[in-house]
C-alpha cells in the first residue's frame, strides 16, 4: 500500500480508538470533576462491561444484533449498579478522603478482576458484531461496524452533554460539584448524586467496552490499557474538564493509531506516560486548561 492510503487507514483506526477512549475517559473525568475521586477501578468497570457483553451474547437467543442491543443497555446498567454499590458501601464511608479513596479503588480493582477471572476464566473470548458490512474504499476495505462505533460514541457523548447542560439532574450534579455543603443545604441529596455520578462514570466505561468488544475480544485483564490511556487523556485534557478530555481523547486516539502503525507500541507508551507525568508536574491544569489561581 502507498503512504497516503496507509495514513488514511491509520487515521481511521485512530478515530475508532479515539471514540472509545473519549467515552471511557469522560467517565473518569466526570467522576473526578464532580466527586474529586480518582477511580483506579475505572478500567475494571470497562472490563466488566466487555465480559458481561460476552455473557449476554451467550444467553440471549436469536441473531447477534439482538444480543448486542440487549448488552448495550443491560451491561452499563449492571456495571453502574455495581459502581453505585461500591460508592455507597466503601467510598462514602471514607468520606471521599482522596488518598484513602485511591487505595480503596485499587482494592476494588483487584476484587473485580478476580471476580472476572473466577467467573469468566483466563481466556480471551470473542463477541460477534451485530452486523458485518464491509465498506469498499478505492484502496482497501473497511469494517462498517468500526464506523458505527464512532457514530455511537458521538451520540452517547452528545447525550451526556445534554444531560449535564440541560436537565435538572445535570444542574444538581453541577451544583454539587461547585459546593457540596451548599448543595446539601439546598436539599440536594448529595449521597444520591455521588452514587449516581459514580454509576454514570462506570456506565460510560461499560458502554465503551460493549462497543469495542466485537473488535477486541473480552479478557479479564483488558482494563489496564483503557485505564492508563484514560488517565493520560484526562490529565492532558485538564483534570475534570470534559471538553479538554474530549480534545485530548481525539488527539491521543489519533496519534496512537498513527504512532503504533509506524513505531513500536511500547516506545509510544513510554513516551506517553512520561509526558503525562511531566504535564502533571509542570502544567497541572492540563495542556488545554487555563490556570486558575
Amino acid at each position: 500500500m502507498e503512504f497516503g492510503p496507509f495514513l488514511l487507514l491509520a487515521l481511521m483506526e485512530g478515530l475508532v480508538t479515539a471514540a472509545v477512549l473519549a467515552l471511557t475517559a469522560s467517565g473518569l473525568s466526570l467522576v473526578f470533576g464532580i466527586m474529586r475521586v480518582v477511580n483506579v477501578a475505572h478500567g475494571a468497570f470497562f472490563m466488566l462491561g466487555a465480559v458481561l457483553a460476552w455473557f449476554t451474547a451467550q444467553w440471549v437467543p436469536g441473531p447477534p444484533a439482538v444480543a448486542f442491543a440487549v448488552a448495550l443497555i443491560v451491561c452499563p446498567l449492571i456495571v453502574g449498579a455495581i459502581a453505585a454499590l461500591a460508592d455507597t458501601a466503601i467510598l462514602k464511608r471514607l468520606n471521599y478522603e482522596p488518598e484513602a479513596t485511591i487505595v480503596a479503588t485499587i482494592g476494588l480493582l483487584y476484587i473485580l478482576e478476580q471476580a472476572a477471572l473466577s467467573l469468566f476464566g483466563p481466556d480471551a473470548r470473542p463477541v460477534p458484531a451485530p452486523f458485518n458490512i464491509r465498506l469498499q474504499l478505492p484502496w482497501f476495505g473497511y469494517s462498517g461496524y468500526k464506523l458505527a462505533v464512532v457514530a455511537a460514541a458521538i451520540i452517547v457523548l452528545l447525550g451526556v452533554w445534554l444531560i449535564l447542560k440541560h436537565t435538572r439532574a445535570g444542574l444538581v450534579m453541577r451544583a454539587t460539584q461547585i459546593d457540596r455543603d451548599t448543595a446539601r443545604a439546598f436539599g440536594i441529596n448529595v449521597d444520591r448524586v455521588y452514587a449516581g455520578v459514580f454509576a454514570m462514570g462506570a456506565g460510560l466505561a461499560a458502554i465503551a467496552a460493549v462497543l469495542i468488544v466485537p473488535i477486541q475480544q473480552a479478557h479479564y485483564l483488558m482494563g489496564g490499557d483503557p485505564l492508563l490511556l484514560s488517565f493520560i487523556v484526562v490529565i492532558i485534557g485538564g483534570l475534570g474538564s470534559l471538553r479538554g478530555t474530549l480534545v485530548a481523547a481525539l488527539l491521543i486516539g489519533l496519534s496512537d493509531g498513527v504512532i503504533s502503525t509506524f513505531f513500536a507500541p511500547t516506545l509510544a507508551k513510554i513516551i506517553a506516560t512520561l509526558v503525562v507525568a511531566l504535564v502533571l508536574v509542570f502544567r497541572p491544569q492540563g495542556l488545554f486548561g487555563t490556570r486558575t489561581t
Partner: peptide, 22 residues
C-alpha cells in the same frame, strides 16, 4: 514528582513506574 502533592504525586509516581516497567 515532589513539585506535586497528594493525588497528583500518586499519579506522577505511578506514571514514572509504568514508564520504567515499559
Amino acid at each position: 514528582a515532589l513539585r506535586t502533592a497528594g493525588v497528583a504525586f500518586m499519579i506522577v509516581t505511578l506514571m514514572f513506574a509504568q514508564a520504567g516497567y515499559l
